[in-house]
Write a protein that binds this DNA or RNA. Structure first.
Lengths: 337, 337
DNA sequence: ATGAAAGCGCTAACAC
DNA sequence: GTGTTAGCGCTTTCAT
C-alpha cells in the first residue's frame, strides 16, 4: 500500500509540489481555478494524507500535547484527561499521555522525551515534591506549560487548580455542624503544595471553629493499603468519642471504613468523615461490602470542578496569546445529601 | 535555548555527522576509542537530545502507539490504558490516546490521524458497530493492530478479550443458586460483538438452568440515564417476584438501584443482580446514598482480567515477530462475598 | 576506521 | 500565477 506524497500529485498533474502544497493547505495564494480543482480532486482520489512527521520536522510544530499526570488509576485524572483530549482533538491536536506514578524521576524522563518529540506543549499535574520545579520553570520559557490540579508555591508557572485551602475550610465548616469533639486529618506522607493547602485550610477552620486539632492529630501514611489501615487504626485507638475525620483524598476512605467496621463503629453515631472526591475504584464491590455498612448517613464530599479545570487548561493551551498569565483557583462544591 | 544537533557535535570535534550518529546509537561499528569517548562526552555536556521527529521521518518509525478506546469515563479503560502505557514507556514508546466516545465516525478520524502521524501500531477497543471492521482489517496488513476488550466476529484480526460468553454463563450459574423465578437482561442498545456474546452466554445458561428468559426479558437502553432508569422501571413493572437481573455492564447498576429504592425493593429479599465490572464513578457519593441501601447482601460481579489483558496486548505490540496469530480469550473471575 | 552525499516529505523564501 | 531550491535533523549506503 504505497502512500501518496505531494510529489506524486505534482508529477501526475505536471505542476510543482509548491502549488500542490499551497492548494492543499488552503494558503491565500491565487492559483488558476482549474489547477486548484484538479489538485483537490487528485488528492482525494489518491487518498492523499499529509505526512505529519515531515511537516512537523519542517515546521517544528507537531500538533501533539503531552499530558502528564501522577496517577491514572484514580477517577480524577482520567476524567480530566478525557475532557482535555476531546477538546484538543477538536483542534487537530493529539494527546500523549504520561503516567509518572507520582515519581519525580519518571516525570523527568517523560519531559525529556516530550521535548525530543517536539511536543507543542505540556499539561501537567506534577508529581509530589519540589525537585522538578525549576525544570518546569525553565521549560515554560520556551514552551507552553500549564499546571493543573497541583500548583507550586510561588507564582512563576501558570496553573488551574482547585482552591484547596478554601475548599478544606468549607468542608470543615460543614463537619463542624456535627459538633465533633475532635478532628483528625488523614493524608499521605508524600506531600505537595496543593494538598498542603488542604491541610492549611483544615487547620485554620478548625481553630476558628474551636475544634480540637493539633499536630498529633495529623496522620500521614505511605501509599500502601497496610499503612493506610494502620493509620486509621491509630485514629480509633485514641478512643476519642465522636471524632470527625478529614480525608485528604477519598482514596483513604475504604481502609478507614474497613477498620471502623471491625470495631463496630458507624457514621454518624460514632464518627463523621469528609474527604476530597477521588475514591477507590473497588468501592462497593463485594469485597468492600461490609465496610459500606458503616455508613448510615450520606457523608459530604468535596467535589472538584473537573470540567472547568479541563476547559480552562485547554483554553490556555490552544489560545494563540498563550504568554499571558493564567493563574486560576476554582471553587469546589461540597456535595452533601 | 538553542538545541544541539548532531552537526554541532560533529563540527565541534572535527568528525563527521555519521561518526557521531553511529556512536550515539551504539552501532556495532569500530571507531577509535578516543573519538568515541570525545563524542559521548560532548553529547552529554551539550545535553544532546536526538530529534525524534527527524529520526521518525527518516526511519518511518515513530515509537508512538495509538490507543483507541470508546470511553475514558469508565473505570475499565483508564485502568487498561495505564497498564499499557507503563509497559510501552519502558520500551521507549509513547501512547497517543484517542477516546472515540463509541462513535464510528470519530474512530475513523482518529485512525486517519494516527496513520498520518506514522504511529507504529494501534491498540484498539473498537467502537460499537461493524462499520469500521474492514478498515481495521486492511490496516492490519501493513501495521500491527490488536483489538482489546472487544473483538469482531470472524478471526481476521488479532485480539485479547475476556471470554464474555463463558463469563456470562458462569455469572448466570451463580445467580441460579438464588433460585430466581425469572431472568432479565439489562443492556445497551448500541451493540457490539463482545457484548452480544454476553447475551448469548446468558441465553444458553438460562436455558440450561431452566430459568424463564425470553426475548421480552431483554431490555436495551440508550446511553442516557433517563432511558437506563426507564428500562429499569419496566423490569420492576412486570411485577415478577424474585427476579434476577443481569447487567451487561455495571454502569447500569446505579439507575436500577435508584428505581428499586423508590419502590422499596431490596437485594436479596426482592431481587438479585449480577453484572460486569465497570460501574458508575459516582457510586457511593452522597447522591447515591439511598440507592446503596437497597443492597443488603454483596452482589456478585464479573471481574475482567484487566492486568493480563494489558500485558498480552503490549506483549503483542512489542514483540518483533508480531505477525503471528494472537487470538486470546481470557477467563473472568466471578467475585462474590 | 571514517566521511561525503543522498534523501525521508514537507514548506517557504525567492525567483520569474 | 507558478516553479526552483534549500533545508528541517537524522540515518544509511557507498566510497575511500
Amino acid at each position: 500500500m504505497k502512500t501518496t506524497r505531494l510529489k506524486d500529485i505534482a508529477k501526475n498533474l505536471g505542476v510543482s509540489k509548491t502549488a500542490v502544497s499551497r492548494v492543499l493547505n488552503n494558503l491565500p495564494i491565487r492559483i488558476s481555478k482549474e489547477k486548484r480543482e484538479a489538485i483537490l480532486n487528485l488528492a482525494k482520489s489518491l487518498e492523499y494524507r499529509p505526512n505529519l512527521i515531515a511537516r512537523g520536522l519542517r515546521n517544528k510544530k507537531t500538533k501533539c500535547i503531552g499530558i502528564i499526570v501522577p496517577d491514572m488509576s484514580t477517577l480524577f485524572y482520567p476524567q480530566l484527561i478525557r475532557l482535555i483530549e476531546k477538546q484538543l482533538s477538536l483542534h487537530g491536536y493529539r494527546a500523549i499521555i504520561c503516567d509518572t506514578e507520582n515519581e519525580l524521576s519518571q516525570e523527568r524522563l517523560y519531559v525529556e522525551d516530550l521535548l525530543a518529540r517536539y511536543a507543542d506543549g505540556m499539561i501537567v499535574a506534577p508529581a509530589s515534591g519540589e525537585g522538578n520545579i525549576s525544570m518546569f520553570e525553565n521549560l515554560a520559557k520556551s514552551l507552553p506549560i500549564i499546571l493543573m490540579d497541583r500548583n507550586f508555591p510561588g507564582e512563576k508557572l501558570n496553573y488551574v487548580v482547585t482552591d484547596n485551602r478554601l475548599a478544606s475550610r468549607k468542608a470543615v465548616r460543614i463537619i463542624a455542624r456535627k459538633k465533633p469533639s475532635h478532628l483528625f486529618y488523614l493524608g499521605e506522607k508524600k506531600r505537595n503544595f496543593a494538598i498542603d493547602e488542604r491541610l492549611m485550610g483544615v487547620r485554620e477552620e478548625a481553630s476558628l471553629k474551636k475544634i480540637p486539632f493539633t499536630g498529633k492529630d495529623i496522620l500521614l501514611c505511605d501509599t500502601t493499603r497496610e499503612d493506610e489501615r494502620e493509620k486509621s487504626k491509630q485514629i480509633f485507638s485514641r478512643k476519642v468519642k465522636n471524632p470527625a475525620i478529614f480525608l485528604e483524598s477519598n482514596r483513604l476512605l475504604m481502609g478507614l471504613l474497613d477498620i471502623a467496621y471491625k470495631r463496630g463503629l458507624t457514621i454518624p453515631e460514632d464518627f463523621t468523615v469528609i474527604g476530597f472526591d477521588t475514591f477507590r475504584p473497588e468501592l462497593a464491590t463485594p469485597s468492600d461490602f461490609n465496610s459500606l455498612k458503616v455508613i448510615n448517613e450520606p457523608t459530604p464530599v468535596v467535589r472538584q470542578p473537573v470540567a472547568e479545570m479541563a476547559a480552562l487548561v485547554t483554553e490556555y493551551m490552544l489560545s494563540p496569546g498563550k504568554r499571558r498569565k493564567w493563574r486560576i483557583k476554582l471553587k469546589a462544591q461540597i456535595e452533601k445529601q
